[in-house]
Write a protein that binds this DNA or RNA. Sequence first.
RNA 1: CGGGGCGUAGCGCAGUCCGGUAGCGCACCUGGUUCGGGACCAGGGAGUCGCCGGUUCAAAUCCGGCCGCCCCGACCA
Length: 595
Amino acid sequence: MELILLNEILSSLKKNCNETLLHYYYVMNTYYLSSYFAPTLREDPADAEFPSHKLLVRAGFIKPVGAGIYSLMPMGWRVVKKIEKILRQEMNRVGGQEVLLPVTQPAELWRESGRWNDVGAEMLRFKDRAERDMCLAMTHEESIVHMVRGYVKSYRQLPIMLYQIQTKFRDEPRPRGGLIRAREFTMKDAYSFHENEESLDEWYLKLYDAYERIFNRCGLEYIIVESDPGMMGGKIAHEFIAYSEFGEDTIIICPVCGYSANRQVARFKRDDAESEEMRPIEELATPGKESIEEVSEFLGVSPSKTCKAVFYMSEKRGLIFAVLRGDYEINETFLAKAIDDSNIRPARAEEIKACGAIAGYASPIGISGAFVVADTSLISERNLVAGANREGFHLRNVNIERDFKPDITAEIAAAHAGCKCIKCGNTLEAKRGIEAGNIFKLGTRYSSAMSALFLDRNGTEKPFVMGCYGIGSGRLMATVVEQSHDKDGIIWPENIAPFDVTVVLANEKAKIKLDELKSELEKAGVEALIDDRDLRPGIKFKDADLYGIPIRITMGRKVEEGIVELRERKTGEVQEVRISELSECIAKSRSKECV
RNA sequence: CGGGGCGUAGCGCAGUCCGGUAGCGCACCUGGUUCGGGACCAGGGAGUCGCCGGUUCAAAUCCGGCCGCCCCGACCA
């Protein structure tokens, strides 16, 4: 009875409403470009540099609003929603539960963890009407701990993992590359809580697998590397790096044993000890030769036989004098770890002078008031050229220990292509990439600072052992474009394409068979964008390529015979197909692993 | 934060050196011819020249200050 009534209402709705209105009642799988908002630009935007940035703007997926701030237009939002669907599925699959944490947060939360003071200008702060300190969340460890503490009190309730897909804001000193490094961005962040390290280790591996599935489903080519936990304060971390020449991360890889790490944490094997005898130190005039290149060229020695000095200012230890082999660069992450102070910055000229060193002619010999850190490479080197701490002079035959004693010796040099692998000794390579995701073992950094405690099996109160796992959804969209495009536009992997199929109506006759075609599309169960605009076909083809929709169906010359053209965006392969067989053909040309 | 560049119509740009009616291409609107890889003809609409101040009879243009955006570096889950 009620059903009949409902049907009557529906059919009267159908009669009285135009198609556009019916969009509100049905989930639409088909859209018409003549009324769809996906404006394309013929030319590259002037201020874009990265291919993904140019293409996403040109194809009408995103629009820049301010530095590092973007709006998503319908096409872009569709892609991001598909990525997020994959993220949700894979998070749920490993036991995640979705939540939503606030973007606007009171300072109190951040004072508890200590990060209100630790984090600098990267966090956007402001006051509310009552003059309370507030901030925009740049990450959500504090709020997730706040959510569970007090509720999860027993080891019996562990492990548990909560995740969200939420906007974050980081006032990056320099946003770049469109969505690759935006200030406002959306990410999936998951946090797991454990009774002990073992449980976290197990969970970490599950997430590692989940991440591989996610990136595979998104059609990304990536490598997994060890990374620096940085400000997150964790111990072990991995990054999922997508290969891209435009990437801002440098990764060090051993092609032989497979060792791979972010340059920030990449280790390498120092050269074996030299058998050379130590010679007496001599002073040499090197007028105007300040850089390693100049000095080594002037004296005719290899840069590897020189000693480089780099100065930093540390909050804890004052002036840091770092020395390493002349052909190496300093790794600030290592240096910070070696001196146990993450708060370091390059020293200013007057600070360097204060310890008796002369920039350009500096050496650790005869300086005072500086904390000297030597790279382990120096231990095995003999008779190096170093500065004389005297304008225009260098020293020859300098040897560590004999001529100067560092306060610490540690690995503080950055690995680069050509170094030896720490594991197998073979030659390392360097590649560029974009960080698409990361997983961290956080430990008890936040739970103990914020008194998030539970009772373990022995009835002892303990802080949760935590893990955290992030993937930026907007960045992922851009990263996929970086890897998958050609001169004509984007080439979307099927799983995250804004539409499965685009239909180009190439001439007037094409509309005759449109209904027939639509029912085939329905049968195939695909989402379609029909280009019914009153434009020349050339423009439609250009736009279709730019949008990057995997399958293009052209209705034109042979519609009257019931034949259309099916073209794959990726390969450019074209085949003629009877409309009646379309749904089958579409199914065939799409791969099985579709979402 | 250091170095460089840019800001003129929705988009891409010229004009700025040497002050004097604000221009070009694309897009948009009207009419017509076209119609399978960004057509053509004719007509048309659209700009406080980033903002504030100064110099000048007169400023997109010269001078000073500010703001915004991009690139390189520093920085960076």
